[in-house]
């Protein structure tokens, strides 16, 4: 069971309290009706699915209830960072360099 730092509660909490929410920073268009079919299908169904660091959404469902974003390594499950929804995507390479140190 992973420990996940909730950026709202500011503590590490057990994975059981969280729900996974898929890839982060897949933003919904302001005006979906103007999005062409192919781009809309891409938005709905296509994800990066990397082996390595993945930026993803989690929700502290059985805690503060907030959605937030996390950078997690899909092989080691290591979390490099968690941050509040709405904050910009962090520089993954810088984070990885810092983690390697």
């Amino acid at each position: 069971m992973l420990l996940i730092r909730c950026p709202y509660c500011q503590t590490d909490r057990p994975e059981l309290e969280f729900r996974y929410g898929g890839e982060a920073h897949v933003s919904r268009a302001q005006d979906p009706s103007s999005v062409p079919d192919a781009a809309w299908a891409e938005f709905l169904y296509m994800r990066t699915n990397p082996k390595g660091f993945h930026v993803e959404r989690w929700r502290h469902t059985h805690g503060c209830g907030r959605f937030f974003n996390a950078v997690r390594h899909t092989v080691t499950d290591r979390f490099l960072a968690t941050y509040r929804a709405g904050e910009p995507k962090p520089d993954l390479e810088a984070l990885a360099r810092e983690a390697a140190r």
Partner: peptide, 13 residues
Amino acid sequence: LAHMEDYLQTEFP
């Protein structure tokens, strides 16, 4: 409720 919270918090804050 989770679906509503998702859109409220992340798309329509």
